[in-house]
């Protein structure tokens, strides 16, 4: 399988502090990859570097064959990014918000209407499309974020804590949506989370970040095999994140 994300020695320092330290990993085409780690582990910084939103201090990355430092626009055209606590213009309706993003992506007006209807329908917001986003619940906003990704029809989606703060039903719907993006639309998914049960449920492989380093990488079964006595992802995670040695 071809790698859609590939990093080699990717490092980001802020003054004396190293946020990401010599990160090397690959995400394969068509998989759901769980990027795990506690707050401040360097997950979001890694995503920013992959999207070309911040430059690595050293090392290099390749996303869908493009260099994020030199070709950020090509990457942004083909990668959908849902940040943690996605922001919307509260004084616009859901449809107007999506229309604005579609225009930024230069989606032709002729294609826009059916695309908007389809995206809103997929996330179950057809009935709410003309309501102001300011009145949306957190769960509805997250789903609208997914609808925004669908407009682009990206090859790769990067989700930063997509289910954080949702109620159990909302979490469930969000995970189902992510799986459907992968299985029905063939999108590769990189999901950052520290909700381990979510990763366990939908991710094929996981990478565990700790203190800026990649402490573990592999399928959950592989990681369990390397840690005798560890049965679930939670135990594996705790052991690796305490050790925090680069893999």
């Amino acid at each position: 399988m071809a790698a859609v994300i590939k990093t080699e020695g990717l490092t980001r320092r802020y003054g004396r502090q190293t946020a990401v330290d010599a990160l090397s990993f690959e995400v394969n085409d068509g998989e759901i990859f769980g990027f795990l780690g506690p707050n401040g582990a360097g997950k979001t910084t890694t995503i920013l570097m992959l999207l070309g939103l911040t430059e690595p201090t050293t090392g290099r990355a390749e996303v869908l064959g493009f260099d994020p430092v030199r070709e950020p626009l090509q990457i942004k055209r083909q990668v959908g990014y849902l940040p943690e606590n996605v922001g919307f213009y509260d004084d616009l309706t859901a449809r107007e918000n999506l229309r604005f993003v579609a225009r930024l992506n230069q989606i032709p007006e002729a294609r826009l209407q059916p695309l908007l209807d389809h995206a809103l329908g997929t996330v179950g917001l057809s009935g709410e499309s003309d309501k102001l986003v300011g009145k949306f619940s957190h769960g509805m906003r997250q789903r609208l974020g997914i609808a925004e990704l669908l407009l682009k029809e990206p090859k790769l989606v990067i989700l930063d804590e997509p289910a954080l703060g949702l109620d159990p039903d909302g979490m469930n719907k969000m995970l189902e949506l992510i799986v459907s993006l992968n299985r029905e639309r063939g999108m590769t998914v990189l999901m950052c989370t520290h909700l381990l049960n979510h990763a366990e449920r939908i991710c094929g492989r996981v990478g565990i970040m700790s203190k800026g380093k990649l402490a573990a990488l592999g399928t959950i079964a592989e990681l369990a095999g390397s840690q005798p006595g560890a049965t679930g992802l939670e135990q594996i995670y705790l052991r690796y994140s305490r050790e925090a040695k680069p893999c």
């Binding site: 999207l51 939103l53 626009l73 942004k76 055209r77 990014y81 940040p83 606590n85 996605v86 922001g87 919307f88 213009y89 509260d90 993003v101 930024l104 992506n105 230069q106 925004e148």
Partner: peptide, 15 residues
Amino acid sequence: ERNHRTLTKLVSQPI
């Protein structure tokens, strides 16, 4: 834009 978290959305679009 920064406080409403829409700046990240803007800069992650292909512009």
